[in-house]
């Protein structure tokens, strides 16, 4: 089974993991409805690394919710009005793409956990949440 760079982080956070396309994916950390609600109310991050191109050097995060820009502006000088741009996020060169729910971040795999932690730290003032695939599907619905 393939593992995202955050696999161990998800395990430690008590995520319910499932298999999808040969990958371990985090379905939820506690309650999908609560996770989706916290994202709608403020901001949250989700690991979508399993949506992966062959031999990709990137982990893939979704950051969503009304406080998304406020969190990202603490970690990047990128102009977030661009639709797609490379830039430094938490001192790591990444690809930032606008997404219907917020922004998609492509982070070099070996830096993924470090940037994930930075996002959580920067988001503390907004009570940032982590959310799993179930919550992300609810948000997309």
């Amino acid at each position: 089974m393939k593992r995202s760079a955050l696999h161990r982080w998800h395990e430690k956070a008590g995520a319910t993991l499932a298999e999808e396309n040969g990958w371990y994916v985090p379905l939820r950390y506690s309650n999908a409805e609560q996770e989706a609600g916290a994202v709608r109310g403020s901001v949250g991050i989700c690991d979508l690394s399993h949506l992966h191109e062959p031999l990709s050097p990137y982990a893939r995060f979704l950051i969503a919710g009304p406080n998304t820009r406020a969190v990202l502006s603490k970690l990047t000088s990128l102009n977030l009005d661009l639709t797609k741009a490379y830039g430094s996020v938490a001192h790591v060169r990444s690809l930032v793409t606008r997404h219907e729910l917020g922004f998609l971040l492509m982070i070099p795999r070996d830096y993924a956990e470090s940037v994930w932690e930075s996002l959580l730290h920067a988001g503390e003032e907004f009570h940032i949440t982590v959310f799993g695939l179930e919550a992300s599907r609810r948000l997309e619905a």
């Binding site: 593992r3 760079a5 161990r8 603490k74 970690l75 938490a90 001192h91 790591v92 795999r109 070996d110 830096y111 956990e113 470090s114 940037v115 930075s118 730290h121 920067a122």
Partner: peptide
């Protein structure tokens, strides 16, 4: 600023 010193971990880190 905040302590966001980037850390690179290999896939076998843990």
């Amino acid at each position: 600023g905040a302590r966001h010193h980037p850390i690179r971990r290999t896939p076998m880190h843990y």
